Simulated scan of single mutants.
Amino acid sequence: MSFYTSLNGLKNSQTELGVIAHNIANVETNGFKKGNTQFADIVAGSAQTNPRMIQGIGATVEAVTQNFGLGPIEQTGSALDLAITGDGFFTMQAADSGRTVYTRNGALEMDESGYITDGGTNRLQVFPTDADGTVTSATPVDAQIAPVNADGAEFVGVTVGADGTVSASYADGSVTAVGSVALASFITPTGLKQIGSSNWEATGISGEAKYGSPGNGQYGKLMSGALERSNVDIAEELVGLITAQRNFQANAKAIDTATQISQTVINLRT
Rank of each mutant, 00 (worst) to 15 (best):
S2L: 15
Q263Y: 07
S180D: 13
G18N: 09
H22T: 14
G196K: 04
T136C: 10
V135L: 05
D81K: 09
Y170S: 01
F3S: 03
A250R: 08
D233W: 02
G98A: 00
I242S: 03
L183I: 06
T103A: 02
T103Y: 00
A168W: 06
G9C: 04
T259L: 12
S262M: 15
I116G: 01
S13K: 02
R246D: 00
N122M: 07
G119R: 12
P147W: 04
N23G: 08
A209K: 01
G215D: 05
I57W: 05
A162F: 08
A244D: 05
A131D: 08
G220A: 11
G215A: 09
A252Q: 15
T65E: 10
G207N: 02
G98H: 00
T259Q: 15
F89L: 11
G173K: 01
A171W: 03
I116V: 07
Q75F: 12
I42A: 08
A150W: 02
V175G: 02
I57K: 07
V135M: 04
G18L: 02
R123I: 10
L82G: 01
R229E: 11
V232W: 02
K253P: 01
E237N: 12
E208Y: 10
T139V: 15
A25T: 06
I261D: 06
T65H: 08
G58F: 02
Q66F: 09
P51I: 11
N8A: 11
I234H: 09
Y170D: 00
Q249T: 10
N216L: 12
K221G: 12
A250Y: 14
F32M: 05
F186Y: 13
M53C: 12
E28I: 07
K193D: 14
G106Y: 00
V158L: 06
G157I: 09
S46V: 03
Q260C: 05
L183D: 02
P214I: 00
L80Q: 07
Q48P: 02
I84Y: 03
G173N: 11
Q263E: 14
V166S: 07
T264S: 14
S198H: 07
A138D: 12
I242Y: 04
P189R: 03
I42C: 09
L17T: 06
F248Y: 15
S13R: 04
S78T: 14
A143T: 06
F155H: 01
D142E: 06
T76M: 14
A131N: 07
I145A: 03
A83L: 15
S206W: 03
G173A: 09
V19W: 06
G152P: 01
P51W: 14
A168F: 05
T29Q: 13
T264Q: 15
A150P: 02
T264H: 14
L227F: 09
A226Q: 07
G161F: 11
L108I: 03
L124F: 01
T243K: 14
S46E: 10
I84S: 01
L238D: 04
D151N: 12
V64D: 04
V27S: 14
N267C: 09
P128A: 08
D87N: 14
L124K: 06
E154T: 14
T165Y: 10
S46W: 08
M110E: 04
S169V: 01
E228I: 07
A184C: 05
S113F: 12
L10A: 00
T117A: 00
V239F: 11
